[in-house]
């Protein structure tokens, strides 16, 4: 008997899996499939026209560059934060540690209006930038600020447990062999946490690409300059251009999936290299 499911004495499999599949189909799969059916109504020509229109291309460029920059910022500073939280003791550490998850818990609209207010030319932080003649709010730089905020926990939370698992013995062994502190980090610790760092980076990146709520308040939303793709989808919807909106959504999905696939491949490669 080569069956779909291995025998088990535990009951409830049919009910649990049946409900799971039904709910998954109704809530996620069927609705998502409508994206592709709707796009199909455009035909290849129509899809190509939407995809290559200047405004769409510009929005994709803005979305992906700002997301990438924000994810890089988060990778760098997230690594430092994770390091500090794992390795050092200092007063208030537990509160700081809990605070890291704020972007998960704070509604994006709240983050959006707050960051816009802070970084506006007359805001708490914006005034200092304005003095240097730098505009943050209502420019792509503002988008980077918002995306950095919402992606902040990802790198910290993926690197933290892996860093805590690096055995002190390995470091001591390296040090006893004459490696300096920087060498130990570069040659022993960093390779061990690199896959986790990459995971955190790609999670932050993926989240940033789709982000809407926190960005639209601070972005200024100037077509061709600071208009992100999710906003363009909303704009098309408001003009009842459902097919156009759907086409952009599909392009975004395809781009993010291929990017994530590439990052996964890189990760697979780097962790296999490290595997003994």
């Amino acid at each position: 008997m080569s069956s779909f499911k291995a025998h088990s004495v535990l009951p409830g499999f049919n009910l649990a899996l049946g409900f799971t599949l039904l709910y998954l189909s109704l809530i996620v799969l069927i609705p998502l499939s409508s994206l592709f059916f709707k796009t199909a109504t455009l035909g290849w020509g129509g899809f190509y026209d939407v995809a290559t229109s200047d405004r769409v291309l510009a929005s994709l460029r803005v979305t992906f560059t700002t997301s990438f920059v924000a994810a890089i910022v988060n990778a760098l500073f997230g690594l430092i934060v994770a390091w500090v939280l794992v390795r050092y003791k200092f007063p208030g550490k537990r509160i700081i540690d809990a605070l890291v998850d704020l972007p998960f818990a704070l509604p994006t609209a709240v983050a959006g209006i707050t960051l816009a207010t802070l970084y506006a030319p007359n805001g708490w932080l914006g005034q200092y930038f304005a003095a240097q003649d730098i505009k943050v709010a209502y420019t792509p730089l503002g988008i980077v600020v918002a995306l950095t905020f919402i992606g902040l926990p990802f790198v910290v939370r993926t690197v933290q447990p892996v860093l805590a698992d690096v055995e002190a013995e390995v470091e001591e062994a390296a040090a006893s062999l004459g490696a300096g502190r920087w060498d130990v980090f570069r040659r022993v610790i960093f390779p061990a946490i690199f896959p986790a760092l990459l995971t955190g980076f790609s999670l932050a990146f993926a989240r940033a690409i789709g982000e809407y709520g926190s960005v639209i308040f601070i972005a200024g939303n100037m077509p061709y300059i600071s208009e992100i793709s999710p906003l363009l989808i909303v704009a098309k919807l408001e003009q009842y251009d459902y097919a156009g909106a759907t086409a952009i959504a599909v392009i975004m999905l395809l781009l993010s999936f291929s990017l994530l696939l590439a990052i996964n491949a890189l990760q697979w490669w780097s962790s296999n290299r490290g595997a003994r």
Partner: peptide, 17 residues
């Protein structure tokens, strides 16, 4: 899957339905 989809697109699919 829903985590990989932009919130805007999550809304969009219900508009399409």
């Amino acid at each position: 899957l829903p985590f990989a989809v932009s919130p805007v697109v999550s809304g969009l699919v219900y508009v399409l339905l």
